[in-house]
Amino acid sequence: RSVSVGLTAPVGTSLVQLSEDSAFAGAQWENYAATKNFELSDGDRMKTVYGRFQMESGGSSAGFAADSIILDRMALIDSVTENSDGAMLLPGDAVRFSVYTKETGGEASIEVAGLGTIALYDDGCCGDRVAANGVYEFLYTIPVNTELTDAVVTGRFTDAAGNEAATVKATTRLNATFPPDPVVLSGHAASSREIVLDWTKTGITDFGSYRLYRQTTAGVDSSSFAVTTISNAGTVTYTDTELADTTGYYYRLYVYDTRGNAAGSNEVHLTTLANQPPDTTVLAANLSGDSANVILTWLASTAEDFESYRLLRSTSPISEGAAYNESLVVAIINTAATTTYTDRPAAGTYYYRLFIFDVQGASSRSHVVSITVP
């Protein structure tokens, strides 16, 4: 707090009084010199030093002389903030760092583990909202591949006089993460009911799952219908089944890491093939050993989307071109491997035909066979 006071006094001046009080209360007379050392009172602020003189003849100067100086021995940070409030940030998100002081013209920065030192400004640019107000700020953009978990934000400040303030930490912590790289999705229609999806394998080490989404219009996202979730990172194909024929479907595959971050693939549009009716079969009719029953046999259907066999019986001839007639059905069999049926009609001549239906309602029919029960 010691300052050098330069004095200019009339010839014959012998004594001088210096004080921060214009009434010179408690001030002592000292031998006059052109330069005097003076101890300022404690506290950083504007200080005014008053001086008056006494002549060798014993007379005193009229009034006093004065000069002012700013005593600045200490810098102070009022507070440090970041405006994410601890929310999870992603690459490209912006966060404003602020160091609040009461001094302009200084230098401020913040330090974040994982980000390093970031300079702040009080010049109205770079995210500083008001120039020269003692609040130093910077609008920082989270870079790619940044991972932060409850990172401490520490503010630093050095004032214009070179005084360094004690560091202050923000009351909130900084959190940031980044999504995994997306995979490339492709696929093809395998049938009228199935679409096969393929994708490139993810390379992330903290793999959580693949999640496949689908809808019948463009713009698939994670709110669309969830087709499947796959927990094995090495699985790179999936067959979507039970679809409608000649129908377009849009797909997108998301890769999730263990923290819940996700990245969506490209969207693919694929159309199922037109449904083809099951192959026809060969029907045969024979009497049982006692001639009381009709034993009907046929070749098993190989249709992947098999739904049922439906056996028709009539007491009048069935033309080869006749359509399916629900009223003539005597048996519905839902197992493709079943290839025989025993009918027990009364005596008479009967005509049989077997229809094969798939799950989409398409059908094929056998030839007509007839047999007489005695």
Rank of each mutant, 00 (worst) to 15 (best):
I371E: 04
K36S: 07
D279N: 14
T349Q: 14
A262S: 15
D150M: 08
F357A: 05
R52Y: 01
V282L: 10
D67H: 06
I195K: 04
D122F: 11
D290V: 09
A160F: 15
V282W: 01
E30K: 11
R259H: 09
G162S: 11
R129D: 05
K201H: 01
E304M: 04
A132T: 13
A113R: 12
S370T: 12
T8I: 12
G264T: 07
D159A: 09
I142Q: 04
E307V: 00
G162V: 08
S301N: 06
D21Q: 06
D93F: 06
G289Q: 13
V369N: 04
N83F: 04
I195V: 15
T202N: 06
R214H: 03
A218R: 02
D358S: 09
N334Y: 07
W298C: 01
R313H: 05
N275P: 03
S265E: 08
I333W: 01
T171A: 14
A27I: 02
T117R: 14
L90N: 11
E30R: 12
F306Q: 09
A119G: 04
K169V: 04
T315K: 15
A27M: 04
E267Y: 08
R211A: 15
T338I: 15
S191Y: 03
E39Q: 14
D305L: 05
S366K: 07
T247R: 04
A34P: 01
Y351G: 06
T246Q: 12
R344E: 12
T246R: 07
G264Q: 10
S191N: 05
V99R: 02
F225Q: 13
H188F: 11
L354K: 09
W199Y: 08
A346W: 11
W298G: 01
G187I: 04
A331I: 03
P91S: 06
N261P: 00
G234P: 00
L148I: 07
F138P: 00
N31L: 10
H269E: 09
N175L: 12
D44A: 08
S2C: 00
F306C: 13
R259E: 10
S19L: 03
T81L: 03
S2K: 12
A218F: 02
T216V: 11
D257K: 08
T171K: 13
A65K: 14
G6N: 12
T35Q: 14
S224K: 05
F178W: 13
S2H: 07
Q276K: 13
E30Y: 00
R129Q: 13
L40S: 08
M74H: 14
A337H: 00
S209T: 03
T48R: 12
E107Q: 12
C125I: 09
T167F: 03
D123N: 15
Y213T: 02
I318Q: 10
W199P: 04
D181P: 01
W199S: 09
D257H: 06
V255R: 04
E164G: 07
V11G: 11
G134N: 06
L312S: 11
S109L: 02
T117I: 12
L90C: 00
G106Y: 07
A65C: 03
R45G: 14
S231F: 14
D358E: 10
T154S: 12
L7F: 06
A25V: 10
Y100T: 08
A274R: 09
Y250M: 04
S370A: 13
T205Y: 03
V152P: 00
P345K: 12
S2V: 14
D122R: 05
